[in-house]
Design a protein around this nucleic acid. Sequence first.
DNA 1: GATGAATGAGTGTTCATTCAT
DNA 2: CATGAATGAACACTCATTCAT
Lengths: 195, 195, 195, 195
Amino acid sequence: MVTSTSEKYDKILQAAIEVISEKGLDKTSISDIVKRAGVAQGTFYLYFRSKNALVPAIAENLLSLSLEKIKERAKTATDFLSTLEVMIDETYKTTDEYRDVLVLCYSGLAFDYSLETWEAIYLPYYNWFEQVLNEAVKKDEVIKQLNVKWTAKTMINLIENAAELFYIGREQDVTLEQSKEELFQFLKRSLVPSM
Amino acid sequence: MVTSTSEKYDKILQAAIEVISEKGLDKTSISDIVKRAGVAQGTFYLYFRSKNALVPAIAENLLSLSLEKIKERAKTATDFLSTLEVMIDETYKTTDEYRDVLVLCYSGLAFDYSLETWEAIYLPYYNWFEQVLNEAVKKDEVIKQLNVKWTAKTMINLIENAAELFYIGREQDVTLEQSKEELFQFLKRSLVPSM
Amino acid sequence: MVTSTSEKYDKILQAAIEVISEKGLDKTSISDIVKRAGVAQGTFYLYFRSKNALVPAIAENLLSLSLEKIKERAKTATDFLSTLEVMIDETYKTTDEYRDVLVLCYSGLAFDYSLETWEAIYLPYYNWFEQVLNEAVKKDEVIKQLNVKWTAKTMINLIENAAELFYIGREQDVTLEQSKEELFQFLKRSLVPSM
Amino acid sequence: MVTSTSEKYDKILQAAIEVISEKGLDKTSISDIVKRAGVAQGTFYLYFRSKNALVPAIAENLLSLSLEKIKERAKTATDFLSTLEVMIDETYKTTDEYRDVLVLCYSGLAFDYSLETWEAIYLPYYNWFEQVLNEAVKKDEVIKQLNVKWTAKTMINLIENAAELFYIGREQDVTLEQSKEELFQFLKRSLVPSM
DNA sequence: GATGAATGAGTGTTCATTCAT
DNA sequence: CATGAATGAACACTCATTCAT
C-alpha cells in the first residue's frame, strides 16, 4: 500500500470517491472517473492497477483520515473513556460523511481482495487501539481479563457497525445522541470495572 | 419478500449459492447458475428480476435457515445466557459453512438495494431476539437500563461480525473456542448484572 | 389474407394496433399485446404465424376500413373530382387517426415481406380506383393519354404520401385545408383537360 | 448531423450498407458489420450511438451522393423540364442501385427517430429544388399559383415513390422508360402552363 | 509521464415461439 | 380452443485495458 501521493493520484482518487458515492461501484466506469478527474483514460492505469484496486485505496484514504483525527483529538483525552468517546464520535462523523463509499470499505471482503490488503489497512488503527487498551489495563481503567488483540479488533468493528446501523440502516428508534450513548454504555459496562 | 417456493425457484437459488460460493458473485454468470440448476436461461428470469436480485434472496434463505435452527435449539435453553450461547454457536456455524456467500449478505448494502429489503429480511430475527431480551429483563437476567430494540440489532450485528472476523478475517491469535468465549464474556459483562 | 374474424383475432389485432401506436413495433413485445388483449401468450399464435405477420394484418385492417369509407362516401359523388376529394379527405383522416401505425404500413416493404402480400392488400383499392379512372376517361372527365394502371397506383401513393408528409413530417408551412387543396389542384391540373 | 468523416467512420458505414443490402437491417448484426469493415466490435460504438443510428447515417450518405450527382448534371440543363428529367433519371438510378437500403431510408420514420433528423437530411435537397422551382416560376416555365415549399417536398417524395414503386413494388405493367416518361408527363401537365 | 483511440472479450437480458395440460 | 410456464437462441452494448504517439 504505497501512498505515493502525486497530484494526479489524488485527483483520480477524489473523483472516484465522488462518483462512486453517487452511482455505486458497479455502475461507475473508469470513463466516469477520469472525466470527473479531468485526466485521460490511460492515466488511470498509471496510478491504479485496475478498477478494483480503487476499493482498498479509498478505504485506506478514509481510514487514515479518520484515524488521524481520532489520534489528534485523543491527545487531549485524559482517560480511557474519553478516548472511547472520541472514537465513537469520530467514527459516526466519518460514516455520516462518506456513508455511500463506506459500505464498500466496511465490506471490502465482498470484493475479492487478499485479506492481507485489509489487514494492512486496518493495522495502524488496530495497533494504536491495542496500545490504548494496554495502557488502560495498566492504569486499571479497564478489566484485566481481556484478550487485548481480539477486543481491539472487535470493538473497532462494533463501533463502525453501530454507526453504519444508525446512518445507513436508518434506525428510527433512536436519535444520534441516544445511539452514541447506548453504544458507549454498552462498551463501558463490558470493559470498565464495576467500581 | 415473497417466499414463493416453487421447485424451480429452489433449484436456481441453491445452484446460485453453490456457484457463487465457488467463484464469487462477479465471476458467476447466469449461464453458470442455470447450467448447475438444470433449467433454461430464460427460466432464471421467471423467478428473479435480475442477477442482483439473487443477493437478498440468498440472504433471506440463509438467515431464515439459521434462525430456524437457533429457535429450535433455544427451546431447550432455560436461561438467557444459554440462549446467547446458542446464538453465538449457531452464527459461527452458519458463517463457517457459507462464509463466501455470507460476505455478500452481511454487506448487502454494497449492492444497491433498498434498505426496506434488508429490514424485511432481518425483521423476524430482530423481533425474536427483542422478545428474548424482554423476557430476560423481566426475569432480571439482564440489566434493566437497555434500549431493547437497539441492543437486539447491535448484538445480532456484533455476533455476525465476530464470526466473520474469525472465519473470514482469519484471526490468527485465537482458537474457535477462545473467540466464541471471548465474545460470550464480552456480551455477558455488558448485559448481566454483576451478581 | 384470410379475414377469419373471430372474437379473439379482433381483440388481439386491436390491442396490437394500440400498443404499437404507443411504443413502436420494435419495442412492442407479444407479451405486451396479449396482456392488453386479455388473452394468453400462446393464443396469439393461434391467430398469427409470427410477430411480423401483424404488419400486413394491421395494414389490411386499416386499408379496408379506409376503402370502405371511401367507397361509401364516393357513392354520392357525381363526378371524378368529387371522388378525388373524398379520397383525399378520407386518406388524411385515416392518417391522422393512425399515424403511428401507418408509417409501418406505408413502408411495409421495409419489413421482409413478399411483395405479393402487399399487392394483395392494395389490390382492391387499386382495382376500385382504376375503375373510377376508366369511367372518368369515358366521360371525358380526365385526359385520355393516361396509363390507367400506373396512374392509379401512383396517385394512391401520392395521396398517402402527402397526408403522411402533413401529419407525420409535420409540415409547418401549410394548414390542413391548404395541404389538401394544394394536393387536389396538383392532381387536377395533371389529369383534367384544361377546358 | 455531423459528417465527421474519419476513415473508420466511412469503412463502417460502407460495410453497413453492403451487409444490410444483403440481409436486411433486422438480420444484420453489429458483428456482421464490424467484421466486414475490419474493425473491432467496440469501434462501432465510437462512431455510432446505436445500431439504429445507422439508418439516418446511411440515408444522409446516399441522399447527399444522389443530390451531388443531380446538381452536377443539372448544371448543363438549360430549362426546368431538363432539370426535372435529370432528377427523375438520377432518382431511378439511385433507387436501382440501393433499392434494399433505400426502403429503410424512405421509410425512416418507421424507426423511432426524431423528425428533426430527417428534416435535416432532406433539407439541402428541398432547398435546392425550391430554388429551382422559384427560378422556373420567374422564367414562366411553370405556373405561378404554386406553394413552392409544399410542391418541392411533394414532388421529391413523388419521384422517390414512383421509382420505389417501379423497382421495389415491381410494377409489371410498364417498362423503365415508360415509367419515367409517365411520371415526367404527369408532373409536366401539373406544372407547366398549357402553352 | 500523459494521452485517448482502439480493442474485443464477455454477459445480462429479452422475447418469439413451443407444448404439455 | 386456450393456456402460460418453460425454453434457449440471439445480440446489442459495455468497459476495463492496452499501446502507439
